[in-house]
Simulated scan of single mutants.
Amino acid sequence: MKYFVVDAFTDKVFEGNPAGICVMDEWLPDDLMQKIAIENNLSETAFAVKEKDGYRLRWFTPGNEIDLCGHATLATAYVISNYYDLNIKTIKFHTLSGELVVVKKDDLYEMDFPSRMPEVFPLSEQMIEALGVKPVETYLGRDLMFVLEKEEDVYNASPDFSKLANLPDGLGVTITAKSEKYDFASRSFFPKLNVNEDPVCGSAHCNLIPYWAKRLGKVEMVARQLSKRGGTLYCRYDGDRVKISGSAALYSIADIRIK
């Protein structure tokens, strides 16, 4: 089975967020896809099968299947447009989060995702101890989202991953602050899914974009993820939807020998 590794939200390898991509003729058993994700040991491995009007898309972390992943969606669109449906401009994905559309615009891939404004949530001492820094605001959507005082605090944060994994609320944890060079910056952690830090998390921006759009009074924004690899996301707030755009770079093409 052909297997691609693509770095998403960057135009060069060794930056952005690497995703494993398998575009298949038919579905493998769920437990086998999970084993492949564990073996790949990337934050996400995406599996896609062509359907009449698009592709069915599923995402697996080393821990389990999840309902939404931005960087692996972008990476899958890159693989399909360059190696399967050559020169396709619009790709429709059927997913656990509904229909997702990716439009190729020159070197960028624009994803149309659901907007998920997080709700204000009470801060606990357990959260502060896990983060190692006291946030100024706390929110909960799918993930816990902590707003820090300044960008430097996001960059320098050194959370205790075992304590993050023991927080009772949220699938993951995102920290964010206003940026000097960009509009806002963030980092994302998913130790509950065996991914301590997700280098560039597109799905977290379903929360981040509506929050920062309201706070900054802007519809279009540029975001930066401050992981060691780093990545840039071009964001647009569109009411109940958000547009997240980024570039991608191919790292490798290989064969997975499963038979």
Score class of each variant (00 low, 15 high):
I38P: 05
M1R: 08
V133Y: 04
K104G: 06
K259D: 14
R241I: 09
D112T: 14
T10R: 14
K35Y: 12
I258T: 12
G231R: 14
R257W: 13
R58G: 06
K259H: 12
A130K: 06
F47Y: 12
K104W: 11
T95M: 11
V103G: 02
L28H: 11
A249K: 05
S252E: 07
E149D: 15
V23T: 10
E180V: 14
E65W: 02
K228V: 11
C201K: 01
L148S: 08
E149W: 02
R58W: 05
F146R: 09
Q34F: 04
L171V: 06
E125F: 00
G172D: 11
A177S: 15
G231H: 12
R187A: 02
K228P: 07
N17Q: 09
V136T: 10
A223V: 04
M127K: 14
D183L: 08
D11W: 00
M127R: 11
R58A: 09
T138I: 02
V195S: 09
S43T: 08
M24F: 12
D160T: 15
L144E: 07
L32C: 06
Y78D: 06
E151H: 01
I175D: 06
A130F: 05
S203R: 09
S115R: 06
K218M: 10
T45I: 04
K105H: 13
S247G: 15
F113H: 09
E99R: 07
P191G: 05
L148G: 05
L123C: 01
C22R: 07
P159F: 00
N207P: 04
L57T: 01
M33A: 09
M24S: 10
P159K: 06
L148K: 09
L208A: 03
T76I: 00
A177I: 05
C22K: 03
K228R: 15
I88N: 02
I21C: 04
Y237W: 13
A48I: 00
L164E: 07
L96A: 13
V154R: 05
M1C: 00
F184G: 12
R257S: 12
V6S: 10
C69E: 12
Y211V: 03
T95H: 01
P199H: 11
